[in-house]
Design a protein around this nucleic acid. Structure first.
Lengths: 131, 131
DNA sequence: AATAAAAATAGTAATTATTACTGTTTTGAA
DNA sequence: TTCAAAACAGTAATAATTACTATTTTTATT
């Protein structure tokens, strides 16, 4: 139960901190193998889950069937390009008032919300023009 | 390419229309086996995907690792109970203005959004009180 | 510094949701 | 009625993730 230090876990988190593109477990695995050539994919999954459970990273489920991870745990919104699938942070205020709006006429208790925006990223827009 | 009639497909859609709880493919399979005892799970998946592709049903990815389906394709928002996982429709207005807010300072093009609300449903709230 | 129990690891096997394949049956236009 | 296209049942394959096991690391205590 008590947490013990592990270089692998530290490396995984350090890697995530350097990235703003919300890598998947496999991307983390590929990268961390640079420093730990025989790290196990299971170790990557276990540590990502552990870090997410203790709130040091966030697990992001954009609906593409693969979990993404983010070292930025502050509340922010994500954009997902429907063409290339990239996940990009949006710089906009929190929409907490949504929760109040949603609670009206609902007999449960709403604590939070997740919003994903979909469309085309700048890169894919530029590509499309050339055709 | 041309669509041909299939009783299985009709039964799958009819079943979805009767349900407001956003069943998974497996739930659909279980139910439709009542009328077609040897329907294949592959047939259920294929038809759910087909119906979703032509816009007759909606595929809902709430982040629990399983796809849910909804015969109500009108724009509406969903609540997911973090305790029992049930998916419930919310009766609230469209939040289209979010897209405009999100587009400010973003160099891609945002077309749509998906919002999920999380919390405890009425059933789970009642259960919790008894402890 | 040595010890030892708890935690973490590497490597592998298992699970789960979903998709793909194949030979047969059904549909519907000619 | 015919027959090609579409859909089917049944099964195999894929992909992401989790579980298991024997070994290694960590760290508190001697």
């Amino acid at each position: 139960m008590a947490l013990k230090y592990s270089r692998q876990r530290e490396t995984i988190k350090d890697f995530l901190i350097t990235r703003k593109d919300h890598p998947t477990a496999d991307m983390v695995y590929m990268s961390v193998r640079g420093s730990y050539p025989n790290i196990s994919l299971g170790t990557v999954y276990r540590n990502l889950t552990l870090l997410a459970d203790i709130g040091e990273i966030a697990r992001i489920r954009v609906g593409d069937g693969v979990d993404h991870f983010d070292a930025d745990t502050s509340l922010h919104y994500h954009f997902i390009c429907s063409e290339c699938g990239s996940v990009i942070d949006l710089d906009m205020d929190s929409l907490d008032h949504l929760i109040e709006a949603a609670n009206v006429g609902f007999d449960g208790q709403i604590d939070g919300h997740v919003t994903y925006f979909y469309g085309k990223c700048n890169n894919c827009l530029k590509k499309g023009k050339g055709e």
